[in-house]
């Protein structure tokens, strides 16, 4: 029952975000909608006990890839015609403050609720399961799929070099100008 509700809520978030990605006029809005979709998918991963993958999804996709998208969108100046008024909503500042303080309180509660490894004090939230699938995942990744893992690192190095070479500004300085 709970699984179904979680699935439905996350699926609605995913699909709303995906539709926003392809329908939004402003590319910045599309990028933010993509974040929404990725968080919904991360929730789906958690509901299928893929906790590590959910963390990677949020960190790599929402943290790195979407930021890269936003960088390029801003760099190309697609939305220069947009009027970026600060403080469009009067209650926005206070809502943001409340949300931030609430998040901090929740995070602090979770940290305090988990077992303290030094003193052994049992927490209210329960400790992280030692036999979680992170261990299984690591065992599989570093034994059965170790060649693919190494090839992935090679692929990432090639991608970094390729991106740098492609995006580099061509050097057009004449030798005498460079000397000045």
């Amino acid at each position: 029952m709970v699984d179904t509700i979680v699935f439905l809520v996350a699926a609605v978030i995913c699909l709303t975000g995906a539709l926003g990605v392809i329908l939004a006029r402003n590319p910045v809005h599309s990028a933010l909608m993509l974040v929404m979709t990725l968080f919904g998918i991360a929730v789906q991963f958690v509901s299928q006990e893929a906790h590590f993958l959910a963390a990677v999804q949020v960190i790599v996709y929402a943290g790195a890839i979407v930021v890269l998208f936003l960088f390029v969108i801003m760099l190309l100046g697609v939305d220069t015609a947009q009027n970026l008024e600060i403080g469009a909503l009067p209650a926005q500042k206070w809502a943001a403050l409340c949300f931030g303080v609430g998040s901090l309180a929740l995070t602090g509660y979770i940290i305090l609720a988990v077992d303290n490894p030094v003193t052994g004090r049992p927490g209210m939230g329960g400790a992280i399961d030692e036999t979680a699938n992170v261990r299984l995942l690591a065992r599989s990744l570093f034994s059965n799929y170790v060649y693919a893992f190494e090839l992935t690192s090679l692929l990432l190095v090639i991608a970094v070099i390729g991106a740098v070479v492609l995006a580099r500004k061509p050097v057009k300085q004449l030798p005498e100008e460079a000397g000045r």
Partner: peptide, 28 residues
Amino acid sequence: VVSGQVFALFIIAVAAAEVGVGLAIVLL
């Protein structure tokens, strides 16, 4: 089985590489 998650992890890595090169091409 845990293979599905391993493959998903590889897909995420490939996606990161693809976005890096793709956005460099867009800039060019």
